[in-house]
Simulated assay, not measured.
Amino acid sequence: MPHPSINADSIAPYSTSLGTSSATEIRLLGHDLADELMGKVSFGELAFWLVALRRPQPGELRLFEAVLVALADHGFTPTALAARLTYLSAPESIQGAMAAGLLGGGSRFLGVTEDTGRFLSTALASREGLPISETEWDDFALSLVRTERAAGRIVPGLGHPNHKGGDPRTPIIFDIAAHEGITGPHLALFAALGRVSERGLGKKLPLNGAGVCGAALADLGFPPDILRGFALLARSAGLLGQISEEMRAPIANRIYMEVDRNAQYVSPPSDGT
């Protein structure tokens, strides 16, 4: 309700294509939330729709939800530990624990999804026309790998600290996209990067799951700037699970005590003065 001193008729409208509400209904994406969406639209479909402002096709939704599942939880990662330790410190603030975990989404964890999507999108935009054959895709990918190596940069999405022989999530994403007929240029280029990594780097590196998720999201039409948001959306479910487990079977205090009780003072290195 407007402030009594403000003339409601003089206020310019704030446009939105998302949600509005009145005394009698809530509308979301142009639909009645209670009657048309609740119980009829999955959370994954709604998340896609809220960002893309269009409903996904069934194949798109299957790929999108597979990406969310792939990114949800990877065990005791730094983001999970941050959430658990924050909950230990402030158990009255579950939002603080969730936020602590999400704030750790960066270049080593979760951010690879965005970094890979951006790298692929930039590379494709730099080229006139798409490669036609697998050989052309490989030649294009090899030139990118060699350019990045010469500049001392890594190719995002290549390599994994644990899955040296291949990330188990990667072929699933490729298979779903192929089965649904929605493999696009980002996934095609990412696959080519995997095929040429040994020629370009001198050792074969696997395509990691975070990277293939970025390629898939880019093929679904999402711009690079929003891709990390989907990784964080997926990880929110994982963090909630981690916090719930911390409530049932806590480990955070043990981690804290082990580090604290084994802390050993050392003199700082001499600065030569």
Rank of each mutant, 00 (worst) to 15 (best):
113 T>F: 00
261 R>H: 12
269 P>G: 06
173 I>T: 04
37 L>A: 01
249 A>Q: 15
141 A>F: 03
58 P>S: 10
220 L>S: 06
113 T>K: 00
267 S>M: 14
214 G>F: 00
70 A>D: 00
22 S>F: 10
70 A>Y: 03
34 A>V: 12
23 A>L: 15
99 A>K: 05
71 L>R: 01
147 T>W: 11
60 E>Y: 04
272 G>W: 02
17 S>R: 14
84 R>N: 01
69 V>P: 01
23 A>P: 10
234 A>S: 10
167 D>W: 03
80 A>W: 02
5 S>L: 14
80 A>E: 02
268 P>V: 09
187 L>F: 04
180 E>F: 09
234 A>T: 00
186 H>A: 12
86 T>C: 12
33 L>M: 11
269 P>T: 09
242 Q>F: 08
166 G>Y: 02
217 L>T: 04
2 P>M: 09
155 V>Q: 06
175 D>C: 12
214 G>I: 02
14 Y>L: 15
112 V>E: 09
249 A>I: 11
21 S>A: 15
105 G>W: 10
149 R>V: 10
77 T>G: 05
252 A>H: 04
128 E>K: 15
60 E>R: 05
51 V>H: 05
215 A>L: 02
30 G>L: 07
129 G>C: 09
151 A>R: 15
154 I>P: 09
35 D>T: 13
227 L>Q: 06
124 L>K: 08
53 L>T: 12
51 V>Q: 08
76 F>G: 11
209 G>F: 00
64 F>P: 02
19 G>F: 01
200 G>D: 03
60 E>K: 02
73 D>G: 03
122 T>A: 15
48 F>C: 05
110 L>F: 10
161 P>E: 11
268 P>Q: 13
13 P>F: 09
204 K>Q: 07
88 L>Q: 11
233 L>A: 13
28 L>D: 01
114 E>T: 07
229 G>M: 06
133 S>L: 02
258 E>C: 06
193 L>C: 03
100 A>N: 09
165 G>N: 15
137 W>N: 05
214 G>T: 00
165 G>P: 08
260 D>H: 14
204 K>G: 00
243 I>A: 08
1 M>K: 13
17 S>L: 13
192 A>G: 07
89 S>G: 13
167 D>S: 10
269 P>L: 14
221 G>T: 02
171 P>Y: 06
156 P>R: 07
168 P>D: 05
146 R>V: 03
202 G>S: 08
155 V>H: 06
113 T>Y: 05
25 E>Q: 14
13 P>Y: 02
94 I>G: 07
80 A>N: 00
105 G>V: 09
71 L>D: 06
32 D>Y: 08
108 R>H: 12
121 S>Y: 04
265 Y>I: 14
162 N>R: 15
77 T>H: 01
147 T>C: 13
231 A>F: 03
127 R>E: 13
